[in-house]
Design a protein around this nucleic acid. Sequence first.
DNA 1: GCAGTTATATCCACTGTGGATATAATCGCG
DNA 2: CGCGATTATATCCACAGTGGATATAACTGC
Lengths: 120, 120
Amino acid sequence: MSDERTEAEALLPLPPATLHILMSLAEEDRHGYAILQDVDARTGGAVKLGAGTLYRSVQRMLEEGLIVEVQQRPAPELDDERRRYYRITPFGAAVARAETRRLQNLVRLARASGFVPRRA
Amino acid sequence: MSDERTEAEALLPLPPATLHILMSLAEEDRHGYAILQDVDARTGGAVKLGAGTLYRSVQRMLEEGLIVEVQQRPAPELDDERRRYYRITPFGAAVARAETRRLQNLVRLARASGFVPRRA
DNA sequence: GCAGTTATATCCACTGTGGATATAATCGCG
DNA sequence: CGCGATTATATCCACAGTGGATATAACTGC
């Protein structure tokens, strides 16, 4: 019986787009197009997900149980029937933590190799 | 006239295998097979480059000027004629620093999203 | 009502990857 | 010495993840 930590690590390394989507949904439930804009904004325009990448990633993430679709919608006058809203699951958060740990270890290795970047 | 920093950032994001190879060569000149073993060792077995990945990556990295082949060989009695030795270039090191900076920023974002991993 | 944006979805081509296969030199050791 | 295991490079195939184009349609502002 594998604990959640082990189960999460089985999905690593995570496709970059997947981590970005999880980061976006960590803040609040969002629909696809809003994720696209949010990722652009949070990364200062450095990361722009392609539409194909987004919708395919979301599909995969639903199957893997990293996110779920929520039927809960904003007030009708603010809503848009075309939208599909998604929420991160506890498992999705565990996977994101595992990936963050993996990346942190990678950065540690790189810095130990002498690749110490000047402050951003 | 783009400075080396700008030129380096044009290659980002770096394929994961490429950064591992640069980390390995940062320590000392190595031949392909030795890089394979070193990456395995430095990552505690967590990363195992496939042979195809390694030799194709090396080819690309030579073309991009991240590494050069060195003709300089160990003492004949320690050598193996089949080996081809590689060395990281100053540009390769600049690219590795840029990629390290990019990864560090990504980790910062992930942690800011609440994905704070428990100590490894 | 019409243009531009929002929104989802699918398609195509390309890159990076692992793992298999091929070939051959070197090494350990009985 | 002989011979199997390892070392070493290289190429091939199939597959995952990606960007960007295309399609369709609803919404928004004027």
